[in-house]
Amino acid sequence: MQSVQQHAATTVVRLDHTAVLARDRRLSAEFLAAVLGLAVGAPFGPFLPVDLGNGVTLDYYEQREEPIQSQHYAFLVPEERFDSMITRLEALGVTYYADPHHSEPGRVNRLFGGRGAYFVDPSGHNMEIMTRPYVRP
């Protein structure tokens, strides 16, 4: 029988799901699904899931009474789907930016040999789409 320490060393840890607070869970889930070209799943208790297709689910949870603290969610997307996501943002009337501080509207960045853009979802979360992962030291 493996010890817990041995098991942890041989098992990859990955994110399975996370709750995303939203003023209106349906509006926010449908917004993100539309931008990314995904589908909203069936409600699961108080959650409305968006399956990212890589084993990770964003579970939208409605919070109307208290302020929602803006969070950052970054999505690594295929290069061949990036342009269609930008087109969907434009069709939705959503401004996208080349930088996380939103000082370069209507532009994309070219970090690490890829492309990326930031935009705000209906609950105020700072979303990012990028075609290359950031290089870490």
Rank of each mutant, 00 (worst) to 15 (best):
D24K: 06
F112P: 04
Q5L: 14
E30L: 06
L38S: 06
A39D: 07
D83I: 07
T57Y: 10
A33R: 02
F31M: 02
R115H: 08
I86S: 00
S70F: 03
A29N: 04
V120Y: 01
V108S: 08
P43S: 14
L21I: 11
A29L: 04
F31Q: 00
G124L: 05
V12I: 12
V94C: 06
A91R: 03
R25P: 06
Q63L: 11
R64P: 04
G41M: 09
P49I: 10
E62P: 01
V40D: 01
D99R: 07
Y73T: 04
E90S: 15
Y96A: 02
A33S: 09
L48F: 05
R23N: 14
R26Y: 08
Q71P: 01
M85S: 00
P78T: 13
H7F: 13
Y61E: 10
E80R: 13
V12A: 13
E128A: 10
V108M: 05
A8P: 02
G45V: 08
G124E: 03
A42I: 05
T10L: 11
G93V: 09
N126I: 12
D121L: 05
P49S: 11
E104T: 15
E79M: 11
Y96N: 02
P43R: 11
T11V: 15
G93A: 10
V12H: 07
Y118K: 11
R107H: 10
F75S: 04
Q69W: 03
A117W: 00
A74T: 05
Q5N: 13
F75G: 02
V40M: 03
P49Y: 07
F119G: 02
R14Y: 14
G114T: 11
Q2E: 11
Q63C: 10
V13W: 04
E90R: 12
L15H: 07
A42K: 06
G124V: 04
L48Y: 02
R115P: 01
